[in-house]
Lab assay of single mutants.
Amino acid sequence: SEIVKHAEEALERGEFVRIEHNGRVIEIRNEEALEELRRWVEK
């Protein structure tokens, strides 16, 4: 997914991403959060 790709690229640069999706906000700061995002987006 485009969202996950964006988050992965930001993590590689040492940045973090805040994503709003279906009214929820998730902050991607590490691999664990990235995995959570993947599960969340796939639903």
Score class of each variant (00 low, 15 high):
Leu34Gln: 00
Arg24Tyr: 12
Glu42Ile: 09
Val25Lys: 04
Lys43Val: 11
Phe16Pro: 06
Arg38Lys: 10
Arg38Asn: 02
Val25Cys: 13
Arg24Trp: 13
Glu2Trp: 15
Trp40Thr: 03
Ile3His: 06
Val17Ala: 07
Val4Lys: 01
Glu12Arg: 15
Val25His: 06
Glu32Leu: 09
His21Asp: 03
Arg29Phe: 11
Glu20Asp: 06
Arg24Asn: 06
Arg18Lys: 12
Asn30Met: 03
Glu12Asn: 14
Asn22Lys: 11
Glu27Gly: 02
Ile26Tyr: 14
Ala10Trp: 05
Trp40His: 04
Val4His: 03
Lys5Gln: 08
Arg38Val: 05
His21Gln: 05
Glu35Asp: 11
Ile26Gly: 00
Gly23Val: 00
Ile19Phe: 10
Leu37Ile: 03
Arg13Trp: 02
Leu11Asn: 01
Arg29Asn: 13
Leu11Glu: 01
Ala7Gln: 01
Glu15Tyr: 08
Leu34His: 00
Val17Arg: 03
His6Val: 12
Gly23Cys: 07
Ile28Glu: 00
Ala10Pro: 01
Val25Leu: 08
Ala7Ser: 03
Glu9Arg: 12
Gly23Phe: 04
Lys43Ala: 14
Ala33Gln: 14
Ala10Glu: 02
Glu35Gly: 07
Glu20Pro: 04
Leu34Asn: 00
Glu2Tyr: 13
Leu11Lys: 02
Glu42Trp: 09
Glu15Gln: 10
Glu42Asn: 10
Ala7Met: 04
Trp40Asn: 02
Glu35Met: 10
Glu15Asn: 07
Gly14Arg: 04
Lys5Val: 05
Glu42Pro: 02
Ser1Thr: 11
Glu2Arg: 09
Asn30Val: 03
Glu32Ala: 13
Glu8Val: 10
Ile19Ser: 01
Val41Ala: 06
Val41Lys: 03
Asn22Met: 14
Arg39Gly: 07
Val4Gln: 03
Glu35Ile: 08
Arg29Asp: 10
Ile28Val: 11
Phe16Tyr: 11
Glu8Tyr: 10
Glu36Cys: 12
Arg38His: 03
Ile28Ala: 01
Arg24Leu: 12
Arg29Leu: 12
Glu32Met: 09
Leu11Val: 05
Ala7Tyr: 03
Asn22Ile: 06
Glu15Ile: 11
Glu2His: 10
Gly14Ala: 04
Gly23Gln: 03
Glu31His: 14
Glu12His: 14
Val17Gln: 05
Glu9Thr: 08
Val17Phe: 12
Leu11Asp: 02
Arg29Lys: 11
Glu31Trp: 15
Ile3Met: 10
Glu8His: 09
Glu12Ser: 15
Ala7Pro: 02
Ile28Gln: 00
Gly23Met: 02
